[in-house]
Design a protein around this nucleic acid. Sequence first.
DNA 1: ATGTCGTATCGCATACGA
Length: 257
Amino acid sequence: MKIATFNINGINRRLPNLMAWLADAAPDVVCLQELKATDRQFPATALADAGYGAVWRGESSWNGVAILARGMEPILTRDELPGNPDDKQARYIEAAVNGVLIACLYAPNGNPRPGPKFDYKMAWTERLIAHAAELWATDLPVALVGDYNIVPEPRDIYETTSYRDNALVQPESRALFARLLVQGWTDAIRAKHPDETIYTFWDYMRNRWPRNAGLRLDHLLLSHDLARKLKASGVDRDVRAAPGASDHAPAWMELRV
DNA sequence: ATGTCGTATCGCATACGA
């Protein structure tokens, strides 16, 4: 079972890129972020024609998350992160696919820092940690997959000072990600590539893709029993090089499930 | 401050978020 995460940065604008990658990589499950589409604008028919069932939670202009499943319909379990009923941003969706509980998340970017956006990032990710603890305690096979908007360690970003004040690399941000790992979750990319430099995002600005000035922001975390079934993981970098690409590349893992 | 995108809008240019 191949599970991928892809911050698509506008699903309708990016539909040809998405379709080409789906045909090429044939993932069984895909977690999408930054749909930038309302529920009505979600291209469900085109995805069904490509062989994918889907659940989604859209929003006008910003955010938006979806879970795709090849040859089946994901069974929706949640479409919001618990802990703040006033939070209307479409950043979390959860569904069961083939016996695995898939959590698809799009954590807040948090810039500029300091400020209300950074506070929201902290509060949202705290809610994620609380919900992750509950999921861990169920002993179900769970994958927490998505754009965490956190660079876990200094080696997960190219050599630079231009991100020094950025929310993505702050010690407070990194501490939140570390607390998830302390719960027991396995970082599927790191587990299979302990010493490699791996990025999933390259900003559009300043030639950062051609310079390979990237960041690792998209993560796939596995519960205890799923971690033992991890076969392989990687990043489809070629997708970032295509015309009209998202600023993120898909990250994926292969499970013996 | 800037760079580059995508989106929305009292639109052919600007603001905002990333």
